[in-house]
Simulated assay, not measured.
Amino acid sequence: MDCSVGTCLFPLHRSKTIHLVRHAQGIHNVEGDKNYKAYLNPEYFDAHLTPLGWQQVDNLRNHVHSSGLINKIDLVITSPLMRTMQTAVGVFGGEGYTDDKTDVLPLMVANAGNSFRGAISSHNCPPIVAVELCREHLGVHPCDRRRSVGEYQFLFPAVDFSLIDSDEDVWWKDNVRETKEELAARGLKFLNWLWTRKEKEIAIVTHSGFLFHTLTAFGNDCHPLVKKEISQHRAQFYSVL
C-alpha cells in the first residue's frame, strides 16, 4: 500500500497487535555499553540478567498487570537465549511457583541463570514459545550464542521449544558475523512467519539489534514519519499494530 500521502487504514480483522520487548539489562551490556570489544569476552556466553535487569523485569511486569495487558495477550514469543527467556517468564509468567500443583510445570526453576529468584509458575499466563528467527545478531560475540535446548528445557520446563530444529546451536559461528542485511532479511522472515499464527495479540521478547535492523527494513509502505518513528532505537517496551 502506498502511504506516501494521507493516512493509511488497515482492516482490524487483517491486523495483529504485537508488543515488542527488548530484554532487560544483561551482564554483557554493563561493559559492552562502555567498550564494544567487551562483547568478545567469552565470560559473557549466553549472558544472563543483572540485578538491575531483574528490577526492570519487575517494573514491566507491574505495568503489564496493572494495565490489564496480561489478560489480552494470546501468545509470548521469545528468542531462545538466557536473557530473553528470563525477561519473558519474569514479565508474563504466573505468580510464585509452588510444587503442590504437580500437574503444573514451572516456567523457570529457582535460580536459573544465576537469577537468585524463586521458581516462576506457568499457571494463568499466556503460552511462551521459543523461536530462533528472532535471535540477536549472530556470530563472533559469545553472549549471542545459545545453550543446548536440553539445558534450557531443564531450566525453563514450561517454555515450548518445539519450533527449534537443532538441540545444539548451529546458527552461531565463532568466526563469521551475520551482516546487517542478513539480519534484516531474517527479521522480515520472522514477521512473515508471524502472520501465519492464529493469535491476534502477541508479545515478542527479543534484542535491540534484531529490532533496530528489522524495523529499519520494515515499513517502506508507511508514511515517512511512521517509518522514521519505528526505525529508532527503543526502550524496553512498545507496541505496534
Rank of each mutant, 00 (worst) to 15 (best):
34 K>I: 07
79 S>A: 11
93 G>C: 08
20 L>E: 11
76 V>A: 07
109 V>L: 08
68 G>T: 13
99 D>P: 15
121 S>I: 02
76 V>W: 11
90 G>Q: 09
95 E>D: 08
79 S>C: 03
44 Y>I: 01
26 G>Q: 02
21 V>G: 09
51 P>A: 10
51 P>M: 03
39 Y>T: 10
64 V>T: 13
23 H>G: 02
19 H>I: 10
119 A>C: 14
100 D>E: 05
104 V>H: 12
68 G>D: 15
80 P>R: 14
92 F>Y: 10
107 L>I: 09
94 G>E: 04
104 V>L: 14
45 F>V: 01
62 N>M: 06
37 K>W: 04
108 M>F: 06
54 W>S: 08
118 G>S: 14
85 M>K: 03
52 L>D: 14
31 E>S: 11
75 L>P: 00
21 V>C: 15
94 G>C: 15
117 R>D: 07
90 G>T: 02
66 S>P: 07
97 Y>I: 09
73 I>H: 05
119 A>H: 05
116 F>T: 04
78 T>V: 07
100 D>S: 11
98 T>V: 14
101 K>L: 14
59 N>K: 07
23 H>N: 12
89 V>C: 04
73 I>W: 04
71 N>V: 06
71 N>T: 09
24 A>E: 12
43 E>V: 03
30 V>I: 06
105 L>N: 13
63 H>M: 11
62 N>S: 05
37 K>G: 05
74 D>Y: 05
53 G>H: 06
70 I>D: 12
72 K>N: 04
48 H>P: 01
48 H>Y: 04
80 P>K: 13
25 Q>Y: 00
22 R>F: 11
74 D>F: 09
46 D>A: 03
113 G>F: 06
96 G>N: 14
72 K>W: 11
65 H>A: 15
103 D>M: 12
88 A>V: 09
109 V>Y: 05
71 N>E: 04
68 G>H: 11
85 M>Q: 02
55 Q>V: 06
44 Y>K: 00
32 G>Q: 07
33 D>Q: 10
40 L>M: 15
32 G>N: 14
83 R>V: 01
61 R>C: 13
90 G>P: 02
110 A>W: 00
57 V>R: 03
30 V>R: 00
109 V>R: 11
23 H>Y: 11
78 T>F: 08
50 T>L: 00
99 D>I: 10
78 T>Y: 07
63 H>I: 14
110 A>V: 06
87 T>A: 07
106 P>G: 00
38 A>R: 10
31 E>P: 01
29 N>Y: 11
58 D>W: 09
39 Y>V: 03
106 P>T: 06
78 T>I: 10
101 K>R: 15
97 Y>V: 07
92 F>C: 07
99 D>F: 13
121 S>Y: 10
110 A>P: 12
112 A>Q: 01
109 V>T: 13
109 V>I: 15
36 Y>V: 12
37 K>M: 10
22 R>N: 12
103 D>Q: 12
52 L>N: 09
57 V>K: 05
38 A>Y: 02
33 D>I: 01
80 P>L: 06
